[in-house]
Design a protein around this nucleic acid. Structure first.
Lengths: 146, 146
DNA sequence: TTAGATGCAAAGTATTTGCAACCCT
DNA sequence: AGGGTTGCAAATACTTTGCATCTAA
């Protein structure tokens, strides 16, 4: 926890940005979310009027640029979660039918392949999101939309 | 093109859904987008009042369930593009700094690793999106947000 | 014929903006 | 002190909903 805070403060400092009350608060909302991805609007509600909406939106954008948070597409919407520096690396498997999301933590082969590919292209990969879509165990035999 | 249309029509028919004017129109917007991912709002504008907004939103949801389109997280927003059946398989590399998106078509190793992983989990993978974030060639030496 | 699809209209949410006041460094 | 940040307030933009009408099969 304390370590996370250091990383956060340094990210701001290294980019010459201020360590403000709002930014600390926003960061804490993510920390306290239990790693559940949040939409901008959900954060507005969570914050319970302690920050203005516009401040939240502006800082979400800032955090994203600093790679403090990262976007995840969850079904129909986009949400944000702490980036890997805080969160640990993982991937998602989403069922097209029932919407169930499974989180995956071990995928060395995939990560290696991604690393190689990026290097080949001269792209400096910082992190990646992988969303696998298909049918979960339960839904494999009932594919009609319902 | 004609082949794509067949796939589209069959997708509807196989699920017992009607092949309506609106749906054909929406499908064509994607075809004509030159494979650029589109947000719901962009589509509303594109459609130029030929369809009602509500029809567009409802059909986007339908198309997604039928796997005609798929979501892609592009920076701040979520967008849609034709699914692989129409589009061909590919991945995105997005620059955190300038937002530039590079499309990648050859990544056998990654795809193989994903296939293996899914199999191991009893998940029937239909498709996947991979978004690699980092710094593009140009931005690698200028990492401050600006 | 008729279940499903659409348009309309309005309500409900979400996001962005300019500017004056404020607070980090 | 001084520029980056915030709050405020209002304008925009986006998304959803119910219901009557229409249309594809």
């Amino acid at each position: 926890m304390t370590g996370d805070n250091e990383i956060f403060k340094n990210a701001l400092k290294n980019s010459g940005l201020s360590n403000t009350k709002s930014r600390r608060q926003l960061f804490n909302i993510f920390v306290n979310s239990g790693h559940k991805p949040l939409s901008p609007a959900e954060i507005v509600n969570f914050s319970n009027e302690t920050m203005d909406r516009s401040t939240i939106y502006r800082n979400l954008e800032t955090f994203q640029k600093l790679n403090i948070i990262r976007p995840v597409s969850i079904g129909w919407k986009i949400k944000y979660e702490l980036s890997e520096e805080f969160h640990g690396h993982h991937h998602h498997m989403t069922c097209i039918k029932c919407g169930k999301i499974t989180t995956i933590h071990d995928d060395t082969d995939i990560d290696l392949a991604i690393k190689n590919l990026s290097a080949k292209r001269g792209f400096q990969a910082i992190e990646h999101t992988l969303d696998i879509r298909g049918y979960c165990n339960t839904c494999q035999n009932f594919k009609n939309p319902g």
